[in-house]
Design a protein around this nucleic acid. Structure first.
Length: 847
RNA sequence: GGGCGGAUAGCUCAGUUGGGAGAGCGCCGGCCUUACAAGCCGGAGGUCACAGGUUCAAGCCCUGUUCCGCCUACCA
């Protein structure tokens, strides 16, 4: 497994926390289960972000990047990295991430940089990397090109300006509609649809571009949508992708009017030097003055923003480096189609395919300094480009030594795309690569499915000849309790480190796991985390209880065979076995929330609520074997539960586990429990259910009747079957005394039911609590009435089913049989409850 | 514009081959029962968004509708 490398500038946020918690659960589970596991950590150099951060630092000293110069600036970044970079790594440690920290990698490391060069050169040699003029997304604040993925489109209110472009010959004018009047300064044509009757006669004529007084042609192109705006479209090939393509088709000149800082340049005539938005207003004003502005409409449109600085992206014609992506994408599509890599949950496969099939060439050059500098050199003599693995001495064409390296660096994702193999020593054929490539699973959020996963697929297949991972598990995004994205501006960010401080890493991790249901966003609120801290506390206290009772326990000497375990011992061992199976299955299929739920349910509601309570009797038993047997089972089950819990809650389980008798070393390298089916014991489970049910009913009556716990009651049981049940209850009567405040247990004989008694119906047994002097009959009558009503509802449902002939004919036999039995027992229950009511009535009337 | 997901208890959400609606929190009542009051015991609360359909049987499958969210796209 390789970690999705977080930005070196970053600090741990919820997304990382979830991501790493899930990976850590997987890696700890598999490690304990005896597999050779590697979890390789690291960070990426986050070109734009890092440069941004360090530039801000410089600004505090009144220095600028350019003032410092490239080399010194990069030194400065390295210094910054040494001091502040990678705090996220420490934060991951606090979360409990059990990466192999000795293998930490950084995308700018020497080895990884070498891989980057190797890949670049090979792709260049295969003509898969090229340099070309194209419209790219330019961020005027970051001063760099951005890939299509790095632009956020947001619906933005704006205006739709209808502008007259007068015909050269005079007379009419053609009205074009635009949201960006400042770009008209760079217009080189007006386009209409060839089949638009309104304009057909104008095609081939010329207009005078207002403000610039330039003569430009009216052309026909099917790209134009007749029904939109005025049906006439101004064409600015240097500042719009589509206009650029139209321009190519019609051999239009390109005129750049906006410079790299977002200011109007010398081509903008009198608007030169203005910011593009200022220019927009001035241009509109000028048009108004000249009566060329026909109208202005309110209009909402999609505007691209820089994902990093949120400035408005300027599409600009520029020379950039690209990767020809189709030849790389095809094998990556095929690999997923053939199941070489599984994307889970499978819903994401479709998204992956959609994107891969419509992929566009990847603009990989960035006009910043921090990153892998493109290994291309321009010859000052002949102008030829030399691309080389090592810094070249001479031009590959003319041999001149007068070379200058390309100033641009590569997109950070270029190096991240190599992560699964560059971190393991590629291009060397290392042992690590042989052992760990392809990686077993990549765990990540869907937000970087395209940025990263898709690109790793392409690069892995290209350079390793094999997919980079067998499984890609896509987890949800973490949102706030209202389902909103966490963002600083909304102020709804929950800081994982604060959560760890406040609730502990274990509780926090367990929360993340239990919320990580597949295919859903994780809505996190502090309440939930707090709830799981209680769980951690519960575990701690249960462990304390066990340990407090082990003073005289010797695990070697005191071990007794299974056959001599008590019923409750066998019962809890059976449930433990089921638990192991369930947790394993859930983890194998990345159902973290299920695994967490199984553990929670078992530890709290089966082990603590029941077994420990039952066990208290065993511990004080006069029978030494009973005591040591209970001790043994308490320790065994706790130990097993701890090991199952360890991937989720590494800290607390470690602490407790090491203090259990007989344990040495770390729980981390102990074995993950294996289900031993010889401990499955249906019989014990059924018997315990009966006992628990009687306890439950007695408690229920007590609760509803408000009988104080200190008030012991007498319980009379009337068992239905051949005496086995009676035997069972008699043998375990101490549990009733202990857990239901029963003072005396009696068995009714024959069919004689106590008259003045509260009644409950359980499987194979009727339960009576004589009421004399305890409660009033009216209350009991109401209670029984409620029971009858509840049963009635269920009863009528079953009855309806069974009276449906088609159900009887078509439903599977076992289902029908189940319903029949249910029917019978409900009839029986109803009858008994009604008899109970009658008896109470009698008593009340006699009163 | 295209695609995807969601709508289940007051709140946040589970519910994988269609066969007796669940959890946590909150709420009500009773308990300091010596592991745990961050706890224990009991209880109330749901025509599973709406309308159709398939089926003996639908929270689950199909169709449509409404509302919410996300992704994606070059309509100036």
């Amino acid at each position: 497994m390789v970690i999705p490398p977080p930005n070196v500038t970053g600090s741990l946020h919820m997304g990382h926390a979830l991501n790493c918690a899930l990976q850590d659960i997987l890696v700890r589970y598999n490690r304990m289960d005896g597999k050779n596991t590697l979890w390789l950590p690291g960070t990426d150099h986050a070109g734009i972000a890092t440069q941004y951060v360090v530039e801000k630092d410089l600004a505090k000293e009144n220095k600028t990047r350019k003032g410092l110069g490239r080399e010194e600036f990069i030194d400065r970044i390295w210094r910054w990295k040494k001091e502040h970079g990678g705090i996220i790594i420490d934060q991951l440690k606090r979360l409990g991430a059990s990466c192999d920290w000795s293998r930490e990698r950084f995308t700018m490391d020497e080895g990884l940089s070498r891989a980057v060069r190797e890949v670049f050169v090979r792709l260049y040699e295969e003509k898969l990397i090229y340099r070309g003029d194209y419209i790219i997304n330019w961020c005027p604040r970051c001063h760099t090109a951005l890939s299509d993925l790095e632009v956020d489109y947001k619906e933005t209110p704006g205006s739709f300006y209808h502008v007259r472009y007068p015909l050269k010959k005079g007379g009419e004018a053609i009205i074009v509609a635009t949201t960006r009047p400042e770009t008209m300064l760079g217009d080189t044509a007006v386009a209409v649809h060839p089949e638009d009757d309104r304009y057909r006669h104008l095609v081939g004529r010329e207009v005078v571009l207002p403000l610039m007084e330039r003569v430009i042609p009216i052309i026909a192109d099917t790209y134009v949508d007749k029904s939109f705006g005025t049906g006439a479209l101004k064409i600015t090939p240097a500042h719009d992708l589509n206009d650029f393509e139209v321009g190519m088709r019609h051999n239009l000149p390109t005129i750049k009017v906006i410079d790299e800082s977002g200011k109007m340049n010398e081509n903008a005539g009198s608007f030169k030097g203005m910011d593009r938005f200022v220019c927009r207003e001035k241009a509109v004003a000028a048009l108004k003055d000249r009566k060329l502005l026909k109208k202005v409409e309110q209009y909402n449109h999609n505007v691209g923003y820089c994902y990093r600085c949120n400035d408005v992206i300027e599409p600009t014609l520029s020379k950039q480096w690209f990767i020809k992506i189709k030849p790389l994408a095809e094998p990556a599509i095929a690999a997923v189609e053939k199941g070489m890599t599984k994307i889970l949950p499978p819903i994401w496969e479709k998204t992956y395919f959609d994107w891969m099939e419509n992929i566009r060439d990847w603009c990989i050059s960035r006009q910043i300094w921090w990153g892998h500098r493109i290994p291309a050199w321009y010859c000052k003599e002949c102008g030829e480009v030399t691309v080389s693995r090592t810094d070249p001495e001479a031009c590959c064409a003319c041999g001149s030594g007068s070379l200058e390296q390309e100033a641009d660096v590569l997109d950070t994702w270029f190096s991240s795309a190599l992560w699964p193999f560059s971190t393991m020593g590629w291009p060397e054929k290392t042992e690590d690569l042989a052992t760990y490539y392809p990686t077993s699973v990549l765990v990540t959020g869907f937000d970087i499915l395209f940025f990263w996963v898709a690109r790793m697929m392409m690069m892995g297949l290209k350079f390793m000849g094999e997919v980079p991972f067998r499984d890609v598990y896509i987890h949800a995004l973490v949102r706030d309790a209202q389902g909103r994205k966490m963002s600083k501006s909304l102020g709804n960010v929950i800081d994982p480190l604060v959560m760890i401080d406040e609730y502990g890493s274990d509780a926090f991790r367990f929360t993340l796991a239990s919320l990580a249901a597949q295919g859903r966003d994780v809505r996190l609120s502090e309440d939930v985390i707090s709830g799981y801290r209680h769980f951690a506390n519960k575990i701690w206290n249960a462990a304390r209880f066990v340990q407090l009772n082990l003073a005289d326990f010797n695990p070697q000497k005191d071990r007794i065979p299974y056959s001599r375990y008590s019923l409750v011992d066998k019962w809890i061992l059976s449930l433990t076995t089921r638990l192991i199976r369930n947790v394993r299955e859930a983890l194998e299929s990345y159902r973290f929330n299920e695994a967490a739920a199984f553990l929670y349910q078992f530890v709290w509601h089966e082990f603590c609520d029941w077994y420990v309570e039952f066990g208290k009797h065993g511990l004080v038993s006069a029978d030494g074997n009973r005591r040591s047997g209970t001790q043994q089972v308490l320790v065994d089950v706790l130990d097993t539960a701890l090991r199952l819990l360890h991937p989720f809650m590494p800290f607390i389980t470690e602490e407790i586990w090491q203090n259990l008798p007989g344990n040495t070393g770390s729980i981390m390298v102990s074995s993950f429990p294996k289900a031993d089916t010889t401990f499955l014991n249906r019989d014990a489970e059924e018997k315990l259910e009966k006992i628990k049910d009687v306890i439950y009913h007695v408690r229920n009556i007590r609760g509803e009747m408000n009988i104080s716990p200190s008030q012991k009651v007498t319980v009379v049981l009337l068992c239905m079957d051949d005496g086995k049940t009676r035997q069972l209850f008699n043998d375990h009567r101490h549990y009733f005394f202990q857990l239901a405040s029963v003072g005396d247990l009696q068995f009714a004989t024959g069919q004689k039911r106590p008259k003045a008694a509260a009644t409950a119906i359980s499987k194979d047994v009727e339960i009576f609590i004589p009421l004399a002097g305890i409660i009033d009959f009216g209350e009991e009558e109401r209670r029984l009435g409620k029971e009858v009503a509840k049963t009635e509802k269920e009863f009528s449902l079953v009855q309806k089913k069974l009276s449906n002939e088609e159900f009887l004919r078509k439903a599977p036999k076992d289902i029908v049989e189940k319903e029949r039995q249910r029917y019978a027992s409900l009839v029986e229950k109803q009858r008994k409850l009604k008899e109970g009511i009658l008896r109470i009535k009698e008593m009340r009337e006699a009163d």
